[in-house]
C-alpha cells in the first residue's frame, strides 16, 4: 500500500479557478517526492488538499486522496483533527507566520502531544526536548522557553520541523520550507530533512520552485504546470533525460552554467495561463516551440517514457531533440 495515493484530484476555487486539474500521484512509504512548478501551477494547492486546509465553502474537491489507507476527502471534522498530526503534518515557508507568537515554542509542541496522546505534561516536555535535540537546535533546554521572535530564521525553521514531528507522523508535507532562508542555512535544512527522512522512515512531499533544492532531497520529482503534472520520474531521469518541453525549458532557462559573458538565457516565452480560462488543449502549447496542431485541440494523455518516467506531451519522443535537450545531460 502506498503512503499517499492521489487519484484524479480536481480542486476548483469559487467555481471558476481550476487550480488542480486532474492530478494523480502516489508516494511509497519512505519515499521523498518533490512537486515543482511556478506560482499558480497548483503544487501548494495539491499539498494543502492532503491536509484539507482549503476553505470548505469556496472549494470544490473531486477525485480521491488516500493517506495510509484513509479516505481524506470523506473525513468528518473530528476525524480530520485526529488525522492531522499523527498521520500527516506540514511545515510551511514562513515559520514566523506559522508559529503562534504568544506561546513559547516548547508550549506549542507540548500542546500538540497532549492533544493527541495520553501523557503527562512532564513527559510531553521531555519529548519536546528530545525533538529539539533531534533537529539540532543548540542549547535545546533554553530554546524550549523561547518565543518564536527570539529565534533566528534557521532556528525557527528547525523548531517548526520539530513541531511537525511531535506526534511521529508517517507523512511529512513541506511547502517551500527553505525558500525564505539564506543560502548557507537552506542547505543545512535540506540536509536535515534528508537525515530525518532516512532515520524516521518518513514519506515526504516537498513542494518547491527551486529545481536545485528538489534534486538535493527528492527521490522522485513531479513537475506541475497549470494544475497538472506534466512530467514525473526519478530525479536522475528528469535532469538527464527530460521529455516535456516545459521541463526542458526550466532546465535551459537556469542562469546556472551559462559561463560565457553576453550570452542570453534561453527563456521560455510568454507567461503561465489564466487558470480560470485554460485552453482546451495542452496548457503549455501557447509557449511551446515544439507544439503541433493536435496540442491546441486535445489534452495530451500521460505517456510512459520508461518505468515510472511519464510525460504529458504528444511529442515526448522527438521534442527533446528539437529543443536541444541533449546538451543538458552533461550538466
Amino acid at each position: 500500500m502506498s503512503a499517499v495515493d492521489i487519484r484524479d484530484l480536481r480542486v476548483t476555487f469559487g467555481g471558476v479557478v481550476r487550480a488542480v486539474d486532474g492530478v494523480t500521484l502516489s508516494i511509497e512509504r519512505g519515499e521523498v517526492v518533490a512537486l515543482i512548478g511556478e506560482s499558480g501551477s497548483g503544487k501548494s494547492v495539491t499539498l494543502r488538499s492532503l491536509m484539507r486546509l482549503h476553505p470548505p465553502r469556496a472549494t470544490k474537491m473531486e477525485g480521491t486522496i488516500a493517506v495510509e489507507g484513509r479516505d481524506v476527502l470523506a473525513m468528518t471534522p473530528r476525524a480530520l483533527a485526529d488525522y492531522r498530526g499523527p498521520i500527516v503534518s506540514m511545515i510551511f515557508q514562513e515559520p514566523l507566520l506559522a508559529l503562534d507568537p504568544v506561546y513559547t515554542v516548547g508550549e506549542q509542541i507540548m500542546e500538540i502531544i497532549l492533544r493527541h496522546e495520553k501523557v503527562s505534561r512532564k513527559e510531553a516536555r521531555a519529548r519536546a526536548l528530545a525533538l529539539f535535540e533531534r533537529v539540532r537546535i543548540p542549547s535545546p533546554e533554553r530554546r524550549l522557553d523561547a518565543y518564536p521572535h527570539e529565534m533566528s530564521g534557521g532556528m525557527r525553521q528547525r523548531a517548526m520541523i520539530a513541531l511537525a514531528l511531535a506526534c511521529r507522523p508517517k507523512v511529512l508535507l513541506a511547502d517551500e520550507p527553505t525558500t525564505a532562508l539564506d543560502a548557507t542555512v537552506q542547505i543545512q535544512i535540506l540536509l536535515l530533512l534528508r537525515e530525518l527522512q532516512r532515520d524516521l522512515g518518513l514519506s515526504i512531499i516537498f513542494v518547491t520552485h527551486d529545481l536545485g533544492a528538489a534534486v538535493e532531497v527528492a527521490d522522485r520529482i513531479a513537475v506541475m504546470y497549470a494544475g497538472r503534472i506534466v512530467e514525473e520520474g526519478t530525479a536522475r531521469e528528469l535532469i538527464r533525460n527530460p521529455r516535456h518541453p516545459y521541463t526542458i525549458g526550466l532546465l535551459k532557462s537556469r542562469a546556472h552554467g551559462v559561463m560565457e559573458k553576453g550570452t542570453r538565457l534561453d527563456a521560455i516565452p510568454g507567461a503561465p495561463p489564466d487558470l480560470a480560462r485554460l485552453p482546451p488543449g495542452c496548457s503549455f502549447a501557447p509557449r511551446c516551440a515544439a507544439a503541433i496542431e493536435s496540442c491546441q485541440i486535445e489534452q495530451p494523455p500521460s505517456f510512459v517514457v520508461e518505468g515510472g518516467h511519464r510525460a504529458r506531451c504528444f511529442r515526448w519522443k522527438d521534442a527533446p531533440a528539437q529543443l536541444g535537450a541533449q546538451a543538458l545531460g552533461a550538466a
Binding site: 543560502a183 548557507t184 537552506q186 542547505i187 535540506l190 540536509l191 527551486d210 529545481l211 536545485g212 533544492a213 534534486v215 538535493e216 526519478t234 530525479a235 536522475r236 535532469i239 538527464r240 537556469r254 546556472h256 550538466a331
Partner: peptide
Amino acid sequence: SMPSIDPDHRT
C-alpha cells in the same frame, strides 16, 4: 551552499 542540481553528487 548552492544546491548542486546533480542527482549523483548531492551535497
